[in-house]
Each structure stands twice: as C-alpha cells, then as structure tokens.
Design a protein around this nucleic acid. Structure first.
Lengths: 341, 341
DNA sequence: ACCCAAAATGCAAGAGCTTACATTTCCACT
DNA sequence: AGTGGAAATGTAAGCTCTTGCATTTTGGGT
C-alpha cells in the first residue's frame, strides 16, 4: 500500500483521503476551510503517509517563500551572533525562517551569497553594512525584494538601515582617551574594504584627534583580518614603533582581546603601561583580563528592529524606515591615563 | 521592451534570444552543449534581462537541490564555527551550498529545523551529535536523505558519524588531573539533555575516577546552559561547597573561561589555588589568562571529513562510513597539582 | 417538501525549470 | 552533388503545489 511511497505528494494524500488535491491544499493551509469529516480523513491520510509539503512547489505556486536571508561577514566570532539570534526570534514570531550565509568579509563572495539567497526565493534580505556594488541593490530593487542593512545607521541613502553611528561612537571613545592625556594612538581596525563600519570608526578617531588639536601623524592604523591572533600580531607591530603608543583603540573586542593577550606576553601591564579598548561589548569583553573598556552596541535590539522593519516592509509594502540606535561607552579596566614616562 | 520584466524567466530569455527554452536551459547548465553563435545570443539575452534561474523551479524539475543543511546547537559561540567553516568550504568545492540552522540546544526546535531543511529539499543533513528522536532518523531514511552526525564518533549505530571519542578524551584529561594528585573534582558540564557528547564526557570523568580508585562522591557535577556567564556562576557554586574542589573540569572552553574569570574575581590563583580545564581548544583557550589546558578537537578536519563523506553518500549512494578522529590534550597553564593545604 | 444562498469541494490552469524523444542542421566523405 | 551520422535544437510532458472559477452539497426558512 501507499505507505511505501518514499516522498508522498499532495496527490497521494488526496487519493487516500478520497478528495481532490485542492481540498487537501486548503486543509493544509487552513483546516477550517474544510468540513469536520473531511478534516478527519485528511488528517489520517497525512500522517498515514507521513506527508510533508514540498517547499519548492509551494514557493513556485505562491511566489512567496517566507524565508529571509541574512548575510554576515563571519560566523567565527560572536559579534553578529546575538543580534542575529534576536533577528531570528523576531522573524520566527511572524512565521519567517531565516537562512544565514557568511561572506568571510569578501565582497565577491558576499555578492554570490546574496544571489544564492535570491535564487532561493528569499522574501527579504539583511546584509551587514552598506558598502557593496550598487548593482546588487539595483537587482534586488528590480525584483522588489526588501533589503534592510544592519549594524550601521546611514541617514542619506535609499536603503533602509537599522544601526548606530559608528563614527560618532568611536569618536566618543577616542575623545575620552585623548582627554585622559593620550597623544600617540595605535589603531587596530577591522578590515576596511567593503566595510564602511570599520572606515567610519577610523574616521571617528580622526575626528577626535582633530577636535583636540592632535596631529593625525600621531595615529598609526593597522587593519588585519578579524581574528584574535591577528589582534595580537598587530599589537606587536604597533609596539615595535619608535615611540610606542600608550593607547590602542581596536575596531572590535576580538581584536582587542588579542592585543590584551600579547601585552601580557610582553610583560606590559594594562592599563598602566598601555591602554586597550574594544568595540561591540560582546561577552568576551567582560571576561577578558583586565575587563575591556569598550563601546556597547545594542545587538539584540538591533536584530529585533531589523526583523520588525523587514516584516513591515514585506506585509505592508512600505518603503522601510531607518532607525538609529544609541551606543554608549562601557567603562571597565583597560583604559587609563598614560603613565608619565 | 522586456527590460522592464521584474523577474525574467527562462522563457523570456528564450524569446529574446530566439531559441527554445530547452536550448537556454542547456546553455545555462553547460555552455558547451550549444553552438558558439547561439551561446553569444543567449549570453546577451541573459544579461540584458538580468536573468537568474529560479531555484525552486529547478529543484522541482531535477529533484536535487545541491543544498545540504547543518543544524548546530548554537551559533553564539565559536565552538562549531571552525568545523562548520571547513564543512562549507569542502562542500562548496563540490558545488553544494550549506544552510545553517541553530537549535538553541532544544530538541523540539532541532526537530523542527530539520523538518524545515527537508522541506527546503536539502539533499543531505548534518546534525551535531546522535541523540534525537528515532522518528527523525526514520523519516530521513524513508526520504532517502543521507545523514551524517558530527562531533561524536559512535561505532555501533545505523547513522554514519565523524567525530571523536568524547568519553575517552575526557577520561584522559581527568586521569591526568587525578595523577597530579587531585581528589575532589568539580565538573561544569554542557547541557546534557539530548546531548550525548556532554554525557559521555561526564562518563569519562567517572571512568577515570573509578580507574584510580576514587569514590564517585568526590565528583560534583553541574550543567548550566552554555555561556561564559554560566561558567562563572557554576564556578561560584562549586566553590561554596564544604570542601572546595581543587580542580574544575569543564565541558568546554567557554564554560572554562567563565570559571577562570570568576576565579580571578574571587582572588583565586589558577592553577595554584584551583585548576581549571576546558574542552575543544578554540581560540579563546589560547588567549585566556592563564592559557587553558584543554582537549584539542580537530575541528577543521572533522568538518572536512563530514563534508567529504556526505558528498560520497550523495554521489555514489553509498551507505556512509564513520570516522573516528583523534584528540589530544593541550597542556597550557591552567592545570597543576593541588596545593598542599 | 422545496428553494436558495452559502459553504464545501472539484477542475484545471499555471508557476519556471529539465529532459526524453523527435526533428532539423551540419559537415566530412564518397 | 549526395549521403549518413553526429551535433544542435525544438517539443512537450512532468515535477508539486495553489487558486480562480465552476459545480455540488448543505441546511435554514417557508
């Protein structure tokens, strides 16, 4: 008997239940559209066969996948994890599934992943940051696929975004360092290509320097790939300069932890001998030794809002509004005044 | 003109190029099956229209999605990241895309995610560990979807796996601790429900205790959810016992780092006052202070092998072989002999 | 009993691609 | 120039679902 059918289709259920496929389809999508007796029969048929609707077929028929795709630069760190989690939770509430892809900070790869997501009929897309080939946006727009950029708030742009002001946030932190008396500043940035977040953070540091009448020649900027190890390496490089900077501003907590670690290896006390700051305020920052002074980013809030906005765009065909979230400095133990030499 | 068509289909390309859809399809799947002149025309038509093949339709037609799904317990930590990365890389080589879902260590959710993946026509599935409702396996088997379990090697089972012997690995580490003179042992395990990896690791500790003639009453076992914070909390709990354990074996590095952190807060020196060990050997372990003595797991190798095996099952319809990978202890600074009290 | 609107169900046409099979085109040889 | 077989292309069915429209059933009201 039909029990053996490896992947039962709607038609099999229909036959077994003695109704038409239309009825089964209706039953599946809204049991109330079917009379009690039929409902029973279908129910029985469905689980007798172990039927599961075929996603691809449904997508084709309704032109709607209830899937939204997120493309993040990396999964190897916890940076995007919390936000993404919140994003998923919120979307789940609304019945959407999210597909996650990572681009390894590579614009080419990112473009490809976005295409893949689109080919998979994603109803909406969430890339991180803004910087990318305009063709991508154009293509998405033509296909009428809502896009929400996250992790970076940009006021003057066609694409909606939910994020924060990377530049101002970093400027605030740099300001604080400078006011503490720091002059020479080392910067370990995120990768900057195709990543305006990193560039804006650097800009923020420059802003702060300028505001305080510091020559930009006091800044030494490195941008190694995003990994703990690289933070350590960059720290070494910075420390081998003629005049050692007394404060190292890092583009994110992961890099900062690497720096911290290397400082310890070099026998440097933080923050007595050198200060180190992070960005993001992930769990790691709290646990590091010494605990990292960093910029707190409202990860979950960002994820939630991004999801909500996307749903709004999807359900109401609205253009999508941008939201700017606040960040704040979390003062812990890794930033202090420079020791008087 | 047809430029306006929001989502061009194969037929549009065909019309514009003046050929049949079959030809376009062939061109798309293997340009060489089409004569030069046609190729040019199609090429032009495709990018004039900005055509992208519709995935759902293709899947329906060929019954093959070139997609494989991975379900991991969590993305919030780096634990699975490296392995997953390798898994993706290897699969990418073979033309597969991987879809990642996380289950938040919740069996219900995991089952749902697996169903979703199947509905999305995943050609194969990679869940972490073995423990799960047999119905899931049965369903997958019926649909003839290859499954590969990772992170846990199990010899006697229907399902292929690539992983390591969690029990033996942990036993080895526990043995080392005991030989150093430790008697009272605190254990901060991973969550154990639906997670035989965690349970096996605990079993390993018990094995070691028994082997060394230690009463099991010397063990105190906690299994908080998997987060740095919880590791810290658990550590406090362990330390508030009548007789404080002098060594804390943790189910993974993340928990261990939490413990380490709390130890420092409590003014306890590691390993002088208390030893702490991890499991997994993620980057964090190297960077922690003191650096964590832990069990090295061949993450990338595991991911790569899992991918290769899955591809083999897929392409050659083979039953799928299990692979057992070796682990080893990485001795760093967090494990030492108990201080003589 | 009978009528009729409302409710339930059925029919069949898509949705966009692949592919077996049929047809046409091409070219090397005689 | 004529022929045969390979190469290129076309035709149309099929994959699994949804849904507009047509048809049948139901049940309350007279």
């Amino acid at each position: 008997m039909s029990k053996l059918c490896p992947t039962p289709a709607l038609a099999d259920v229909a036959k077994l239940a003695g109704v038409s496929t239309a009825t089964v389809s209706r039953y599946l999508n809204d049991p109330n559209r079917v009379v009690e007796a039929t409902r029973q029969r279908e129910l029985k048929a469905v689980d007798r066969l172990g039927y599961t609707p075929n996603f691809a077929a449904r997508v084709m028929a309704v032109k709607r996948s209830w899937t939204i795709g997120a493309i993040i630069p990396t999964m190897e760190n916890a940076i995007f994890a919390r936000g993404l989690q919140a994003f998923q939770e919120e979307l789940h509430q609304h019945g959407y599934t999210v597909l996650v892809s990572s681009s390894a900070y590579d614009p080419e790869l990112e473009a490809e992943k976005i295409r893949t997501l689109v080919a998979h009929d994603a109803d909406g897309v969430l890339p991180i940051g803004h910087d990318r080939d305009p063709k991508i946006y154009k293509d998405l727009a033509r296909r009428d696929i809502p896009v929400m950029n996250a992790w970076s708030f940009m006021a003057y742009t066609q694409i909606a975004s939910v994020g924060f002001d990377n530049r101002a946030a970093m400027a605030e932190l740099a300001n604080r360092a400078i006011r503490l008396g720091h002059q020479r500043i080392g910067v370990i940035s995120d990768i900057t290509t195709g990543n305006e977040r990193a560039r804006l953070r650097i800009e923020g540091i420059r802003d702060a320097a300028r505001q305080n009448g510091l020559s930009l020649s006091n800044l030494t900027i490195l941008d190694p790939p995003y990994q703990i190890e690289n933070g350590a390496e960059a720290f070494s490089k910075l420390m081998s300069q003629g005049i050692r900077p007394k404060v190292i501003l890092c583009g994110n907590d992961v890099l900062a932890v690497g720096a911290l670690h290397r400082a310890r290896d070099m026998g440097l006390k933080v923050p007595k001998d050198v200060s180190v700051t992070g960005f993001d305020d992930i769990e790691l920052a709290r646990v590091a030794a010494p605990a990292l002074t960093t910029v707190h980013v409202p990860h979950r809030e960002m994820g939630r809002r991004a999801a909500a906005a996307l749903v709004d765009m999807l359900e109401n065909r609205t253009p999508g509004a941008s939201t700017r979230l606040a960040t704040h400095i979390v003062e812990r133990q890794s930033l202090g005044p420079p020791a008087s030499t």
